[in-house]
Simulated scan of single mutants.
Amino acid sequence: MESKRKSMEEMQQEVDQYIGQFKEGYFSPLALLARLTEELGELSREVNHFYGEKPKKSSEEEKTMEQEMGDMLFVLICFANSLEIDLEEAFDIVMNKFKTRDKDRWTRKEQGEINHESN
């Protein structure tokens, strides 16, 4: 299933159009936080199955981390939309924080290492 890449703004609009067709609209912030927590638990379970010591039972449905992250993203977008938060702006704020406050927190790679890994 190939599709065009979407900006966060486009994703927020798509979710808003989807939710907007239902009378119930967005859930309350508390309900959305509970759903986000539930989805995080499902992602955690998948990570534990793949990287941890707990293999899946043969009766368990096959899910992927990609699906679980998609579920989390959908709920996060619902949460942001319900509070009228622009996630692109929120992302820019947090990246600025990391680039300034944490700029010397970790050991930087040499320029050659960075270029080599991106090829």
Rank of each mutant, 00 (worst) to 15 (best):
M1Y: 10
S3V: 12
S3I: 14
K4L: 08
K6F: 08
S7M: 04
S7G: 00
M8R: 14
E9A: 12
E9P: 02
E10H: 04
M11D: 06
Q12S: 06
Q12H: 08
Q13W: 12
Q13K: 12
E14W: 01
E14T: 09
D16I: 07
I19H: 09
G20Y: 11
G20A: 08
Q21W: 15
E24M: 09
Y26G: 08
S28A: 00
P29K: 04
P29Y: 14
A31E: 07
A31H: 11
A31G: 05
L32Y: 13
L33W: 06
L33C: 05
A34T: 14
A34P: 01
R35W: 12
L36R: 06
T37S: 13
E39V: 02
E39A: 07
L40Q: 14
L40A: 08
L40M: 15
R45W: 06
R45K: 04
V47Q: 12
E53A: 11
P55H: 00
K57H: 00
K57M: 08
S58T: 02
S58N: 05
S58V: 13
E60D: 12
E60K: 06
E60I: 05
E60L: 01
E60A: 10
E61M: 13
K63Y: 07
K63R: 07
K63M: 10
T64K: 01
E66G: 14
E68C: 05
M69R: 14
G70N: 15
G70V: 02
D71I: 08
M72I: 07
L73Q: 02
I77T: 11
C78V: 09
F79I: 08
N81G: 07
N81M: 02
L83F: 07
E84K: 15
E84T: 10
I85N: 00
L87T: 10
E88K: 11
E88C: 13
F91W: 09
F91Y: 14
D92K: 15
V94I: 00
M95C: 06
F98C: 09
F98L: 10
F98T: 09
T100K: 13
R101H: 08
K103P: 02
D104K: 11
R105D: 05
R105L: 09
W106T: 04
W106C: 09
T107N: 12
R108F: 01
K109W: 04
K109A: 11
E110F: 11
Q111I: 15
G112N: 04
G112A: 11
E113N: 09
I114A: 10
I114Q: 01
N115Q: 08
H116V: 12
H116I: 05
S118V: 14
